[in-house]
Amino acid sequence: MSLKATHDLHRRRFGRNLGVGLALAAFIVLVFGLTIVKMSNADRVMPAATEAAD
């Protein structure tokens, strides 16, 4: 016999898990975006620094 998740408890737990999952996914996207921006900035600064050293 299978158990059915009909209790309000299951709904709240699902909501909580979904919230945590979405927050983690958003965090990953944010860190990725931040990395790209930081690396692009570094690319812009680096040539200038190497030119100055010439």
């Binding site: 408890l9 909501g15 909580r16 979904l18 945590v20």
Partner: peptide
Amino acid sequence: IREDDAGFGDYF
């Protein structure tokens, strides 16, 4: 089983 299990909104 905790009847008063918190939802995401409670942590928020």
